[in-house]
């Protein structure tokens, strides 16, 4: 059984404290995102650092309260749900397998933590932890070890085991392979794809690596400065990227094919700053197709065929 996630006009504004006597800076990390993640799918969210994709992941996980808007799972609001119930529904896998495991607790305790939080303990925990470790390709003897005794790939398997031990229906993966070597990355991606199939999970997969997203996701949303600028099925998005930012992002994927050279993405040297969002279209300072209207007029999402694009030129 999977679950549909409905994200309704969600925003998250962080106040950045900037001294006792100056007004706090408002960082609009996520600024009005609406998405529907279909049940049983793998939904990719891509974008560069500072685009708000990790904040969105944390909002879905309930780690931050949203500043406005709501997130519903099967029609029920996540914000109103008790934390323990939400834990049974949604679990995370984070990027850095070195900081996502408590260095002072054993693998058994780490994987068993969600069970302990639900009040399950003793033999039942040990049984389920061992079964889960084997399910993610680790020997159950590993349970007695500390995270420091494991390699990066093994640690990420432990993090996956912890996420799945309660049998959640949704797993939010925030850059789960970015910190890993190429050969290990492939192992983890294969494992995630397999677990998703076997356990009927809904995956929210956040990454900056478009080749990886293309490989495992059915649907992709591209984020830029807190907004979703394009949202389409993976096929449609990769076949015909429409937003100028999506095009630049796709052009900068460097596949191992010699002779193609390095593409000219034509984005200039300015850099997006979520504390200082430009007026008009957020992308206009970097856009190679910018017109005068883009500098002043705020863009709204428009449906173009089977996709949603936030660009007036599309």
């Amino acid at each position: 059984m999977s679950a549909t996630i409905e994200i309704r006009d969600v925003a998250k504004i962080f106040r950045q404290f900037s001294g006792m006597f100056s007004a706090p800076r408002m960082v609009r990390a996520v600024d009005g995102v609406s998405l529907t993640v279909p049940a049983g799918g793998c939904f990719g969210i891509v974008g560069e650092s500072g685009c708000g994709k990790s904040t969105l992941a944390r909002l879905i996980l309930g780690l931050h309260p949203a500043s406005s808007g709501d997130i519903l799972v099967d029609g029920r609001s996540l914000m109103a749900m008790p934390r323990r119930e939400r834990a049974r529904l949604i679990q995370p896998v984070f990027q850095d397998p070195f900081s996502s495991l408590n260095p002072r607790r054993t693998i058994h305790d780490i994987v068993g933590l969600p069970l302990a939080a639900q009040g399950i303990s003793g033999k039942e925990t040990t049984k389920r932890v061992h079964a889960m470790l084997e399910r993610v390709g680790l020997r159950s003897e590993m349970a007695g070890r500390l995270p420091a005794q494991l390699s990066g790939g093994q640690r990420q398997r432990v993090a996956i085991a912890r996420a799945l031990v309660l049998g959640p229906r949704i797993v939010v993966c925030d850059e789960p392979t970015s910190a890993l070597d190429v050969s290990v990355q492939a192992q983890i991606l294969n494992l995630l794809a397999e677990l998703r199939r076997d356990m009927g999970l809904t995956l929210v997969f956040i990454s900056h690596n478009l080749a990886v997203v293309e490989h495992i996701c059915d649907e992709v949303a591209v984020m830029y400065l807190g907004r979703v600028v394009e949202h389409a099925s993976t096929d449609a998005l990769f076949r015909a990227p429409t937003h100028p930012y999506t095009r630049a992002l796709l052009a900068s994927v460097l596949t191992p094919e010699p002779g193609l050279g390095i593409p000219d993405v034509g984005l200039g040297d300015s850099y997006p700053d979520p504390a200082n969002v430009p007026p008009g279209c957020r992308f206009h300072p970097r856009c190679p197709m910018v017109t005068d209207v883009c500098r002043t007029e705020i863009q709204v999402p428009r449906r173009v065929g089977e996709r949603v694009v936030e660009c007036m030129l599309a």
């Binding site: 944390r58 996980l61 309930g62 780690l63 934390r83 323990r84 119930e85 939400r86 834990a87 049974r88 949604i90 679990q91 995370p92 984070f94 990027q95 850095d96 900081s99 996502s100 495991l101 408590n102 607790r105 780490i110 933590l113 969600p114 302990a116 939080a117 639900q118 993090a159 912890r162 309660l166």
Partner: peptide, 22 residues
Amino acid sequence: TLDYVAAAWAAGCSRSHILLRE
């Protein structure tokens, strides 16, 4: 701010558990 604390929140652990155990 470390991810294992975030994971404990997401696991539904109580505030005191997170402070004292994590």
